[in-house]
Design a protein around this nucleic acid. Structure first.
Lengths: 253, 253
DNA sequence: CGTCGGTTTGATCTAGTTCAACCGCCGTGG
DNA sequence: CCACGGCGGTTGAACTAGATCAAACCGACG
């Protein structure tokens, strides 16, 4: 399933002031004071290869991260190994808030591609709430956004057909990827295997394969080795009966 | 499906200082300053009968509530009417945060029983973040808790069998109900129809019925008119392969 | 007394699962 | 150099969990 590879914590490289994500129009601007605080909040960077475990279910000393680049996913498993992928993480997403707020992680996080994460000092979170209400609100905003995504996901798994579900998932990941500008360079490739798709949609791997081939035969996607190329994002959204993501600016911490 | 009945906003009755929920050991204590602020934050109460719509998907001027007593649920629907229930609301739960944070509700909320809700002035939320970081943290805590519940739900719908799912749902609602002391008086009755169960589990109503009868024949539950009586909560959790809710104290706003 | 929402049951059908193979690719070890 | 094993993807066949269809029951209520 997941091959846990050694993570490497590296000394601070990218200063927040020069964070490449800040150029992106989809993120809201910081005040200079906020930027300064976040810069101090940041402890370093974590660089990992594809397929490494970033956070483990049950861990109590989990750190707080923001994904800087790459793809990852959150998941839970049952005793007998059945796995459910809950959501995907793209640049700008906050990781590990549960650990910081509740005290224990109830899901795991694993990378799909090489990733770089900003590491924050988690016991500094109360300080953030004390002194930077705007940032505190941003944290809540991000938690609320995650909830929205989960709601839509649950609707999908609970009530959409296999084809609709698959189309929704791929359209969803495509849009998110576009927003953070991952797509430009790499011809809209989503770095997942069919097993990931199956574990996201709550389907078997065999049926997932057949469903994806159907989408491929309709020229909506093309499947590559460990990656999905999106040919027709609008067509996918239409198959899924999905309106698409809202366009509003989001915070970045 | 849902019969929207007229809601009645009533002048403030229960002062926060005398909030009956505060006696419950599962909720954390407030500082006097916090209590005073929340008291001022509160605008009045909303009393509704069973089956009324509290919040509607798509609404922009949604208010922020805390459920004081009764049962409700959050749901989303697809164009063609397929409905997915996302989660249930019990006393002490915050309702409508999405509307306050993101600006638009992406799900609806409907009551299952007569309910009383505290109504908060939503444009006062930034004020709360400014002046009461402890309460702001509580809001985030509650959002994070909702996320945890959704995660477990998604795991359930995606990867558990019909019987496991049903057992999990009922055990889950039972435990939550117990925590807020709804059960004492009413012999552990959960006020839902089998249609609600079906729409929560992502199953058809017929199959839901057959699954529930199976649980009933195993003496785990007894079904009543529009209500589920829990006979063996431990047995249910065992069938579901579920550990149960964490016991830690939670905030109340 | 008729109607309506909720529950129940049996029969039939199908979307999706499970089992079983096979292919191509790549990295490993002899 | 080749043999191998493992992973990701693909395909067909048999099977089953759960859907759909249809009908009936029951209590509440106007």
């Amino acid at each position: 399933m997941s091959t846990a590879l050694p993570n490497t914590t590296v000394a601070r490289r990218v200063p927040c002031e020069a964070c490449p994500l800040r150029d992106n129009e989809h993120f809201r601007d910081f005040t200079p004071a906020e930027l300064k605080f976040v810069s101090g909040f940041k402890r370093g960077e974590l660089v990992s290869e594809a397929g490494s475990m970033i956070l483990a279910e049950g861990s109590h000393n989990a750190q707080l991260f923001t994904l800087l680049s790459g793809w990852a996913f959150r998941y839970k498993t049952l005793e007998d190994g059945r796995r459910q992928i809950l959501n995907y993480l793209l640049p700008g997403d906050l990781v590990g808030l549960q650990g910081s707020v509740i005290g224990e992680m109830e899901h795991s996080v694993e990378s799909l591609s090489p990733v770089v994460l900003c590491v924050f000092q988690r016991d500094n979170l109360p300080n953030l709430f004390e002194n930077h209400p705007g940032l505190a609100f941003d944290v809540t905003w991000l938690a609320s956004r995650e909830e929205r995504m989960l709601d839509e996901n649950l609707l999908s798994v609970g009530r959409r057909s296999a084809t609709e579900r698959a189309a929704y998932l791929i359209a969803f990941l495509y849009q998110r990827s576009e927003q953070v500008g991952q797509g430009r360079s790499s011809r809209h490739l989503i770095p997942i295997t069919q097993q990931h798709v199956a574990d996201t949609l709550g389907l078997s791997i065999v049926h997932t394969n057949k469903t994806l081939r159907k989408l491929a035969s309709r020229e909506l996607i093309r499947w590559h080795d460990r990656a999905c190329e999106v040919l027709d994002p609008k067509g996918l959204a239409e198959v899924a009966g999905w309106d698409g993501l809202s366009e509003s600016k989001r915070p970045l911490i």
